[in-house]
Simulated scan of single mutants.
Amino acid sequence: MITKYVRRFARNTVGIDYAVGDIHGCFAALEIELAKIRFDERVDRLFSVGDLVDRGPQSDTAVEWISKPWFHAVQGNHEDMAIRYVEPGNRDRDHYMMTGGAWLIEKPRYAQVMIADALAELPYAIEVETDGGLVGIVHADVHGKSWSDMVQAFACADSGTKLRRITNSVLWNRDRIQDEDHSGVPDMRAVVVGHTPLKRPAALGNVYHIDTGGWLRGGSFTFLRLDDLQPSTPASHELNWEGA
């Protein structure tokens, strides 16, 4: 069951699919790293775990990137904050400024609305077909006990309150990584997440945490190949926090 909140992509039969960790407006640095792995825009695809905006110098570029035919992103909590900041009557300026939102706050209203509308079109979850099975992509964690539970919950989210209950998990939850929970997600080949910056990518069961702080000084972007689940930096089974 696919909903407007969950988007599925067929298997890539001609190129390589990669997932990348949080970008946070560091698109110029991302382009440099893509060149290093010889990313081919003609046949390869790049899937983002969200947090395209805030903190970095090129957050404005996010709208341009999400229009690229080979780039596909889910919403992160920073997209959520940007969208909610622009909503009438819900402009928590001080909090959003503290979390990196100055780039949007300083824009005229019409530009804010255009950007928020573009970010709101992003799904909360992506499914990618691979030879080994379905790989899921969400920003922080799966809602419920399985991927199918989450998809069903999205399908039944007929109010803002119900949707917020789901997105609180999908965009914000850190319980799995804080508890070092290796139980995994039973009905998926793998699930790829970001949200929590680590010194190295970490595999907890079949959940791959790949935000290695490409947006931080001294950090780097991790690219996870979805065909063989191999990261550009070897994954660790011990969590090393960036402390950001």
Score class of each variant (00 low, 15 high):
residue 84 R to G: 07
residue 114 M to S: 12
residue 97 M to L: 15
residue 87 E to H: 12
residue 91 R to I: 01
residue 89 G to K: 00
residue 121 E to C: 12
residue 108 P to A: 07
residue 102 A to R: 11
residue 85 Y to I: 02
residue 95 H to P: 01
residue 85 Y to D: 04
residue 113 V to K: 10
residue 86 V to F: 06
residue 115 I to E: 07
residue 123 P to H: 02
residue 90 N to T: 14
residue 95 H to A: 14
residue 118 A to V: 05
residue 126 I to H: 00
residue 104 L to F: 04
residue 95 H to W: 11
residue 85 Y to V: 04
residue 125 A to L: 07
residue 113 V to C: 04
residue 101 G to K: 08
residue 93 R to E: 14
residue 85 Y to G: 01
residue 92 D to M: 09
residue 95 H to G: 09
residue 95 H to Y: 15
residue 91 R to K: 13
residue 85 Y to W: 14
residue 109 R to V: 11
residue 93 R to V: 13
residue 122 L to R: 02
residue 111 A to L: 10
residue 88 P to N: 07
residue 108 P to V: 08
residue 96 Y to L: 08
residue 89 G to T: 06
residue 104 L to G: 02
residue 103 W to V: 09
residue 89 G to I: 10
residue 106 E to K: 08
residue 89 G to W: 10
residue 109 R to L: 09
residue 123 P to Y: 02
residue 103 W to E: 02
residue 103 W to F: 04
residue 114 M to E: 12
residue 104 L to Y: 08
residue 104 L to T: 03
residue 118 A to M: 06
residue 84 R to F: 03
residue 116 A to K: 00
residue 99 T to L: 11
residue 92 D to H: 12
residue 120 A to M: 10
residue 100 G to D: 00
residue 113 V to I: 09
residue 106 E to L: 08
residue 124 Y to C: 05
residue 121 E to T: 10
residue 115 I to T: 11
residue 87 E to R: 11
residue 84 R to N: 15
residue 122 L to V: 00
residue 125 A to H: 07
residue 126 I to Q: 05
residue 121 E to S: 09
residue 112 Q to R: 11
residue 98 M to R: 13
residue 119 L to V: 03
residue 91 R to Y: 07
residue 119 L to I: 02
residue 93 R to T: 15
residue 89 G to M: 09
residue 102 A to N: 06
residue 98 M to Y: 10
residue 105 I to W: 04
residue 86 V to S: 08
residue 85 Y to H: 06
residue 96 Y to H: 13
residue 101 G to Q: 01
residue 109 R to M: 13
residue 121 E to Y: 04
residue 101 G to S: 03
residue 92 D to Y: 04
residue 111 A to H: 09
residue 98 M to S: 15
residue 120 A to R: 14
residue 108 P to Q: 06
residue 87 E to Y: 10
residue 89 G to C: 05
residue 120 A to D: 10
residue 93 R to S: 11
residue 86 V to G: 00
residue 106 E to H: 06
residue 115 I to W: 01
residue 118 A to H: 02
residue 117 D to E: 13
residue 124 Y to K: 05
residue 110 Y to M: 13
residue 122 L to E: 03
residue 126 I to R: 00
residue 88 P to T: 05
residue 125 A to P: 01
residue 121 E to P: 06
residue 88 P to L: 04
residue 108 P to G: 04
residue 113 V to R: 11
residue 88 P to V: 00
residue 107 K to E: 07
residue 94 D to T: 12
residue 98 M to W: 08
residue 87 E to D: 15
residue 91 R to A: 14
residue 106 E to M: 05
residue 124 Y to R: 09
residue 94 D to N: 14
residue 124 Y to V: 01
residue 118 A to T: 04
residue 91 R to T: 10
residue 125 A to I: 00
residue 90 N to C: 12
residue 125 A to V: 06
residue 84 R to H: 15
residue 106 E to F: 03
residue 110 Y to W: 08
residue 96 Y to D: 02
residue 111 A to T: 10
residue 107 K to C: 01
residue 125 A to Q: 04
residue 104 L to E: 01
residue 100 G to V: 03
residue 125 A to F: 02
residue 98 M to E: 15
residue 92 D to V: 10
residue 113 V to Q: 10
residue 91 R to N: 14
residue 89 G to Y: 06
residue 89 G to L: 09
residue 105 I to V: 15
residue 90 N to K: 14
residue 119 L to T: 04
residue 118 A to G: 03
residue 96 Y to V: 09
residue 90 N to L: 10
residue 98 M to P: 01
residue 114 M to G: 08
